[in-house]
Simulated assay, not measured.
Amino acid sequence: MCGRFILAQRIEKLGERFNVNITDDIVFESAYNIAPGDWTPVIASNAPEQIQFFRFGLTPFWAKKPMYLFNARSEGDRNKTNDPQFNGSKDIINKPAFRKPIRTQRCLVPADAFIEGTTNEGLKQPYVVYLKNKVRPFAFAGIWDQWEDKQENKTILSFSIITTTANKLLQKLPHHRSPVILNQSDELRWLNPDTPLSYITQMLRPFPADLMNAYPIDSKISHPGANGRELIDPAGPPLEPDDQFEVGNHIEKKGFGRRKIR
C-alpha cells in the first residue's frame, strides 16, 4: 500500500515540472507526512492546466458517508496473495468505487518520496522510498471522485493512489505492494479522458526497482499529525548502494526542499 508520502517542493517547482498554472492565492507548506484525510496538490483531468487541492482518501460519488479509500488495487479482487509475478487482468476497471474514475477521472499526485513499512511491522519499521538521481517530484497514478457532503453542504474532491505488485526493492523491505509511479512521458495520456482504457491499464505496472532506493527512518512517522523534516532523517544506510547518499546529511544532499515553499 501507499498511505504516507512526502512533498516538500516549492509550489513554483510543481508548476514548472507539470507545466501548470500557479495562481497567487495558492499557499503550500512542505509536507513530510501526508496521510489519508490530508489535502494535497494534484493535477486532475477536469482541469489539467492547473494545480488543485484534493483530499487524500477517495469517497465515491454514491457513498452515504466519507470512505477515505486511499489506495486502489490495480488487480482489484484478483491476485489476493500479492504474487509479484502476477500478470493477469486489471480488475480495478470493475470495482464499484473505481470503475468510473479509472475511465475518466484520473489525476497526477506529485510526490518527492513515499513512506512504506514492512509487511509484518507496518510503520513500526518505516522506510523512505525515493527515486535515484534526484528525480523529484514524480507523479503517482491517481484517480479522483466528487462527493456531495449533504450534512455540511459542501463538495469534496478526493483521490486514491493506485497500487500494483511489489518490485524487487519493495520486496526487499519486505513489502507486498507498490504505488504506481508514472513515466513522465505517460502523464498527459494518463490525464486525457479519451485515452483508451487498454492503454491506461498497461501503465499500471511496478516502477523499475533499479531506479529506486530506500532507507530506514524512526517510527515517529507513524503518527498522522506529525510533520517536519526531521521525520525523514535516516536511521541507517540505504538498502542499495547509493554514491549520493550520506547518512546524517541526506536531506541537505538530496534536496527535499525547504519547510516553507511559498
Rank of each mutant, 00 (worst) to 15 (best):
I251N: 07
A44S: 14
M1S: 10
R136I: 06
Y199W: 13
A72G: 00
I92M: 06
F256L: 03
T165S: 11
N21F: 11
C107Q: 14
R258D: 13
R262Q: 09
D243W: 05
Q105F: 14
V129S: 07
G257L: 07
K253A: 05
N249L: 15
I6H: 02
D243V: 12
N82L: 12
F159M: 03
P206L: 06
K132V: 10
T165W: 00
I22K: 00
P196W: 11
S160I: 08
K124N: 15
G57D: 09
N227E: 10
I156T: 09
G122H: 06
D194K: 15
Q125W: 01
I22C: 03
E16Y: 02
Y215K: 09
G76M: 00
L182Y: 00
P96A: 11
P48D: 11
N33G: 09
R106C: 12
A72I: 00
N167A: 04
R189A: 08
P216F: 07
N153D: 14
E12W: 06
V128W: 02
I232C: 06
L108P: 01
G15T: 04
P216W: 01
I43S: 05
F138L: 01
N249K: 14
D24A: 14
Q105K: 15
K13Y: 01
M212T: 15
Q202A: 03
P179I: 13
N183G: 14
A47H: 13
P137H: 09
I251R: 00
L123N: 03
N249V: 08
Q50I: 13
I181W: 00
G57Q: 01
S160H: 01
E187M: 09
Q184H: 10
N33P: 09
E29C: 08
T195I: 06
F56R: 05
D145K: 12
Q146K: 15
I162F: 00
D149C: 09
F98R: 12
F86N: 12
F245E: 07
N192H: 03
A214I: 01
R136C: 03
I232P: 05
D112M: 08
F28W: 09
Q105W: 12
L231G: 02
Y130D: 02
G57F: 10
R205D: 04
R262V: 14
L58A: 10
A111G: 12
Q52W: 00
K132M: 13
H250V: 11
K90W: 12
N21D: 15
R10V: 00
F140D: 03
E230D: 13
I221T: 04
E246S: 07
T164P: 00
P237C: 09
V20Y: 08
M203D: 07
T40K: 04
A141M: 05
D233T: 15
D112P: 03
D210C: 08
P66T: 04
I11M: 00
F18V: 02
L7K: 00
